[in-house]
């Protein structure tokens, strides 16, 4: 089964063609990576998938539904969650509040206007689970923006996961992290993937991408120039020429 499919997606900003005829698939339960040099259109791709930008052409399908024209919030409620290249946490909120804010709405308006402590034991349990899973217990009541960078990344990921997505979009998740933190994240993503979560990520860190992804797409100037397993992509002459450089082989 395919969680996400892009069919010939294009995006034009005035005279600039940021994406041209991009088609890709994220099969259920897989980790798929999109790599490419700066300015290749990777973040634009994410913005089109999440409805932040409208595709100029082509279709985006989420679990078979055509979501190309849907507003962002509807797309996100339908099973996609994302993290940002530059962490975007809510300035006034504690870690705990971040774990509550993105949860899917269940039980209608009545439950959402009642104090969470009274009405929504389920949401609290879910937040508690995320707190433990990400090892954030000691930061529960701290304003998230005041925490160290690596921890803020975790909070952002935890927030994304409390939305109970089918597909997680990660925008450069290990940017600015050291090797040890990156290893920790890799283990985390493998763990989430083992629970059945599909992941699509954009990343610059080649060893990280190669060791994590099942499937890779290479984007250059808004065009997909290669796809395949990490090994196949690593040895693809087109990719070597455009991006990786011979020494990476």
């Amino acid at each position: 089964m395919t969680v996400l499919a892009l069919n010939g997606v294009g995006k034009r900003f005035g005279g600039i063609q940021a994406l041209t005829d991009v088609s890709l698939e994220v099969p259920a339960g897989r980790i798929v990576g999109v790599i490419g040099p700066n300015g290749a259109g990777k973040t634009t791709l994410f913005n089109v998938i999440t409805g932040a930008y409208r595709a100029s052409s082509g279709d985006v399908l989420l679990a078979g539904n055509n979501i190309t024209q849907w507003p962002s919030h509807r797309i996100m409620q339908s099973g996609i969650a994302r993290t940002f290249q530059n962490i975007r946490l809510f300035a006034s909120m504690t870690v705990w509040e971040h774990l509550l804010v993105a949860q899917p709405r269940a039980g209608g308006l009545w439950r959402s206007v009642m104090p969470i402590g009274w009405a929504d034991a389920e949401a609290r349990t879910r937040a508690e689970d995320a707190l433990v899973f990400f090892g954030l217990e000691q930061y529960r009541d701290v304003i998230a923006r005041t925490l160290p960078y690596g921890i803020q990344r975790k909070v952002e990921m935890a927030r994304a996961l409390t939305a109970q997505p089918k597909l997680l979009l990660l925008d450069e998740p290990v940017a600015g992290m050291n090797a040890e933190e990156a290893d920790e994240l890799r283990a985390l993503f493998h763990g989430l993937n083992a629970r059945g979560l599909s992941i699509l990520l954009i990343e610059h860190d080649m060893p990280f991408v190669m060791s994590l992804c099942h499937q890779l797409y290479v984007l250059n100037f808004g065009v997909l120039i290669a796809e395949g397993t990490p090994d196949a992509v690593r040895n693809d002459p087109v990719v070597l020429d455009a991006y990786l450089g011979t020494e990476a082989a």
């Binding site: 932040a52 402590g117 929504d120």
Partner: peptide, 26 residues
């Protein structure tokens, strides 16, 4: 009471960062 609800958290999310709020499904 409302300040302790999910709805109010959503309002604060919009207050803090509208784009991020939109992209967590609000």
């Amino acid at each position: 009471l409302l300040e302790r609800s999910r709805l109010w958290l959503h309002m604060r999310a919009v207050h803090d960062d509208e784009i991020a709020a939109n992209l967590v499904g609000l």
